[in-house]
């Protein structure tokens, strides 16, 4: 089985948040509970401030802290499903230990006060134990893998769009949104990225484009010293708004 990995080229990323929007539409996450987000950082003061941004999906770590701490073994890494970290919503008790442990902050507990007003949980109240009933179409709920609209009282996270990726033919090295045969299997954030800053492929396949990019452009993983070994790699020194330097 493939080991799915993502490469994000920061030299290309424009911080447009199209990935965040696409993810929210694909997975029907509540506003603010962005499984995929772009974080903005500023440095310095006016007039020489700089702004940088970092797209942040779940890193699908090879040695995930969240899995180690879960007191009910609800969250797990499935090596037979592309090495993706899933949450079993039937076992999750919403204790949020995984959210404390995750070094990347990519887990969400949406039952409390909404991050963005108005509270859509009240506007579209959930039926059948679901947290809310979004007006759009969601992927079929898979409680064992944490896909679809979540039930009440559980933690949710990015699944690398497993409901799409899992349909891909066996053995493909990359899921390229430009390949008409594969475009339906590409994760929403990758498929939508306007500057094509994201790549998605098999890290276990030596011929995959993602492996070549990581090797040729010195891909790095965030917080590598934690030993979590993310399956998401970043390239480049990062685009951004450079500091204004007055001519002296």
């Amino acid at each position: 089985m493939a080991k799915w990995g993502m490469v994000i080229d920061l030299d290309k990323c424009t911080g447009c948040q199209a990935c965040t929007t696409a993810c929210g539409m694909e997975n029907d996450t509540l506003p603010g509970e962005n499984w995929q987000d772009v974080l903005f950082y500023t440095e310095g003061e006016y007039p020489s401030g700089r702004m940088k941004w970092l797209p942040r999906p779940c890193m699908q770590c090879e040695d995930p802290s969240c899995v180690h701490v879960c007191p009910t073994r609800a969250t797990y890494k499935d090596h037979d499903a592309g090495g993706i970290v899933f949450i079993d919503w039937d076992k999750c008790i919403g204790c949020k230990y995984c959210m404390i442990a995750c070094p990347y902050g990519v887990r969400f507990f949406a039952d409390e006060a909404p991050l963005v007003e108005p509270d859509l949980k009240e506007i579209f109240p959930g039926s059948g134990g679901r947290l809310w009933d979004p007006p759009g179409q969601s992927p079929d709920q898979n409680r064992k893998r944490g896909i679809g609209v979540q039930p009440k009282g559980v933690v949710s996270k990015c699944t690398f769009c497993y409901h799409r990726v899992s349909q891909a033919p066996e053995g493909v090295p990359d899921l390229d949104e430009d390949d008409p045969d594969l475009v339906e299997y590409v994760p929403a954030c990758v498929r939508t990225c306007p500057p094509k800053a994201r790549y998605f492929g098999d890290l276990d396949n030596a011929d995959s484009n993602v492996n070549k990019l990581i090797a040729n452009k010195k891909g790095v993983r965030l917080k590598d010293h934690t030993g979590n070994r993310p399956q998401v790699y970043y390239l480049g020194a990062g685009a951004g708004i450079p500091a204004f330097k007055p001519k002296s």
Partner: peptide
Amino acid sequence: KKYGLLMDGGYELLFGKPAENSRDDAV
């Protein structure tokens, strides 16, 4: 967590290596 990502290499990844004698006293 957001600012934690800038630790340990995350800062260099985004902002590049700080210059040795950088004029702006960037933190």
